[in-house]
Design a protein around this nucleic acid. Sequence first.
RNA 1: GUAGGUAUAGCUCAGUUGGUUAGAGCAUCGGUUUGUGGUACCGAGGGUCGUGGGUUCGAGUCCCAUUACUUACCCCA
Length: 463
Amino acid sequence: MKPSIPKGTRDFGSEDMLKRQYIFNIIKRNFELFGYSPIETPSMENITTLTGKYGDEGDQLIFKILNSRIHESKNKEALKKEFDLSLESSRNSEELTEKALRYDLTVPFARYVVMNQHNLVFPFKRYQIQPVWRADRPQKGRYREFYQCDADVIGSDALINELELISMMDKSFSELNIPVVLKVNNRKILSGIAEIIGEPSKIIDITVAIDKLDKIGIDGVNIELKEKNISDNAIAKLQPFINFSIIPLDDLHLPAFKLFFEGKSDIGFSGYQELEYLKDGIKNLGIKHLKIELDITLARGLNYYTGTIFEVKANAGTFTPSILGGGRYDDLTGIFGLKNMSGVGISFGIDRIYDVMEELNLFPESISNSSTTKVLFTHFDATTQSHCLQLVAQLRANNIACEIYPDLTKKLGKQFEYADKKHISFVCTVGSEEIEKKTYAFKELKTGQQQQLSIEQIIEKLT
RNA sequence: GUAGGUAUAGCUCAGUUGGUUAGAGCAUCGGUUUGUGGUACCGAGGGUCGUGGGUUCGAGUCCCAUUACUUACCCCA
């Protein structure tokens, strides 16, 4: 049988893992620096917890888990009927699947908050670093199993939370040294636009069309809008937004927004006010790295967002994936029975961050050619090998990572080659003469220097 | 769901308008070197050319089907 793994999944080798841990460590440190504490939730959720939160497209991508022991079902007729119906259309049948793999970390988090509401201190700030699964078609930078690194604060509708998140993104991407643009928008502004032009149900079509501006030009956008049955009158009203769809936040002319919404759309006006707060507040953050722009076309498919929305795009030449997403959700916990719990959060996509950093060669050289092992003990036979056991014990007692070449071989060359390939810095050779004199041949592979040292001298050298 | 591309050694890939025994590099193992790695040289093992059918005197090469992988669109981290 030829070994294989499901498509869209990957194995991570040791070097991959060291690089991934490098990213995880930076993100995790910043999460803690900004006051978030860790939680974890199960890989699988009850399917009813997940469905209906991600929009139609998202719901289709949920990995469902077939119920166990369906052959023992007492009501096989009902089961068959559900199965037949499932063949006809996309639907959820608890007869067949009552569990599913989590699609993101935000919805399980909301579920967690509701279930633990009496034990949590609000506003509750948590971070969570775990894999999620999507039944997507894999392609470059798109996987079916990938990690998200989420930080959310729930139980506070203050916009200072958004500012803190922006500050945290700036610090994190600055430390990772990735060139990025933070795109910001606000669902309230989108709703306001839809309200004013009288096409409230068409807002997704509108943003999708405007988003194609740089590809198909302003006329192309207008044609597409018309194809989506949006009235000429509405298209006319949209024109200012098409022209200023993407604009650096610093250049943003807020009075135009105010004028557009004031007295015409309450929700749009409140979106404008939030934007104004953010623009003012960002001045206080001391942003060093992040380029921030307002992007009216940024909609984000997830249904639960209600206010600010974030997306970070990396710039690795032709490869410009979005590597972070997030936003504010005013009532995600409401469905689970807990009202008035506004939350806001962001999610780093570590797998794509990895791809971008690999593309741009941003990993420190030291990661690729470093080993967790400091010293390899080489030997000639069973006697000298077992003597090594005493020596490694002493090194490990001093927190020096070391290992013994496990196979018995007379060939020192082979053992040295092992050390070299594993990028182990030092080799300590133990022969009968060494055991007698209690000094060992201690060689630094990088320099080729070798001296006879006692185990105490070795420990001293390495600490 | 829509549209392309690819499939040959463990890995990455050559293989000409169809023509005798299908090649290379890397990796593995052995040797030059039975107490010293990264370099070098010599040698060895490893293939029903994704699967099934067809055309042909003859198919890795052409045609059809099928499966897997992959890229782009949609959507997304």
